[in-house]
């Protein structure tokens, strides 16, 4: 079931400054992603249109920026060290409320300054230093050194990127006819469940001219949801049922094949 979500967002500043009139129209093909037995990741389609007033200067540079932020989660980041030739986990840092998924794309590469000023993006090293990490509750454990902290910040982003859960690109938005845009965002099969926020920005001359946000949910459904919640709510009976299944299959397997062998 695909729900159409079309929101018209008019930003008419006509009264104040009659010379500028821009509209951002956003559509998304889905407000929910369902994790069922066949789930192997999905593509989220974000599309829309933007209209700029013809009277606007042709020289101004306009960009579309799409940001997808997943539900917050707590993560433990561990660093391996070599002990007598063995690579074992040693130092560990706990980050609280980091986004479980983060995606940022824009129609052209945006200046670092812009991203920093608007507190967007957390992927690259330069930017990660600028993010207000103090907002994150972090349990540093034995780590006190600033340089080491930075190493952990970068590793957090890198490991998330390696799992395809964090991504920052500038070539995934398709522009059609100069005013329509479309983007397919890869949602990998390891995404956390919960509420996701999609933020869209229309940027003109390095200034955010329009903003629009909407949410969608990633939810488990059907048997996946039933098994998951049963295992959390009734762990003993869940274990028992797993056992009974094992006993039935084990027993009947032996019986069935015994008959085969007699023939």
């Amino acid at each position: 079931m695909i729900k159409q979500l079309i929101i018209l967002f008019y930003f008419l500043t006509g009264v104040m400054t009659p010379s500028i009139s821009i509209a951002l129209v956003i559509g998304s093909d889905q407000e929910e992603i369902y994790i069922d037995a066949n789930f192997s990741g999905e593509e989220l389609l974000v599309f829309g249109a933007f209209y700029s007033d013809p009277s606007q200067s042709r020289d101004s540079k306009s960009d579309i920026l799409i940001e997808v932020v997943g539900p917050p989660e707590d993560v433990a980041l561990r660093k391996k060290d070599s002990y007598f030739g063995f690579w074992l986990n040693s130092k560990s840092v706990t980050f609280r409320d980091v986004p479980g998924f983060y995606y940022l794309s824009s129609t052209s590469e945006l200046a670092d300054e812009f991203l920093i000023n608007n507190q967007i993006g957390l992927l690259e090293k330069k930017k990660s230093q600028m993010i207000d990490w103090s907002l994150l509750t972090t349990d540093w454990g034995s780590i006190i050194n600033e340089k080491e902290k930075e190493e952990f910040y970068n590793a957090l982003i890198r490991t998330k990127q390696n799992d395809s859960l964090y991504k920052q690109v500038s070539d995934e938005i398709e522009i059609i006819d100069g005013n329509l845009f479309r983007s397919y965002i890869d949602i990998p099969n390891t995404v956390p469940v919960g509420e996701y926020t999609v933020n869209l920005h229309l940027i003109i001359d390095n200034e955010i001219s329009q903003e629009y946000s909407y949410n969608f949910m990633v939810t488990r459904v059907g048997i996946e949801e039933a098994i998951y919640s049963f295992s959390k709510n009734y762990p003993f009976f869940y274990g028992l049922i797993s056992l009974i299944i094992a006993i039935i299959i084990g027993w009947s397997g032996a019986e069935i094949f015994k008959r085969f062998r007699r023939i």
């Binding site: 037995a37 098994i227 295992s231 959390k232 762990p235 003993f236 869940y238 274990g239 028992l240 049922i241 797993s242 056992l243 299944i245 094992a246 299959i249 084990g250 397997g253 032996a254």
Partner: peptide
């Protein structure tokens, strides 16, 4: 051990177990 893991570590995956059991019994 299955019951203990199901109730303390919540790590028994019934779907994974089902496919492994089915194929391993055969």
């Amino acid at each position: 051990v299955t019951i203990l893991h199901a109730t303390t570590t919540f790590a028994v995956d019934a779907v994974l177990a089902f496919f492994l059991i089915l194929s391993s019994v055969i």
